[in-house]
Amino acid sequence: MGKPETVRLVSKEGFEFVIDYKAACVSNTIKNMLSSQGNFTETELGEIKFPEISTPILEKVCQYFYYKLRYTHCPDVIPEFKIEPDIALQLLMASNFLDT
């Protein structure tokens, strides 16, 4: 079912986030996973499991991918990317892992 132009990211609770390949490549870790040589299941199915990232964190990460894509090279005023304080630490750990 995986279309080449999209990537599925699966959270700890099994939620699937279907995002554009281009958006996923905001994360260097994901980009490397998807473009690495060899027959990894990740590369073939376009599905990556993150058993350590919970659903709200992964959703925030995906929102950030799109935010980043939209406002990179954007001449307009860039709005703030809102992060709720209670998820900040987990989000920091996820973004560190994803190299984002």
């Binding site: 099994g14 939620f15 986030f17 279907v18 995002i19 554009d20 959703e59």
Partner: peptide, 8 residues
Amino acid sequence: QKQIFFLH
């Protein structure tokens, strides 16, 4: 359900 599609 357990799917979330991000669409441009």
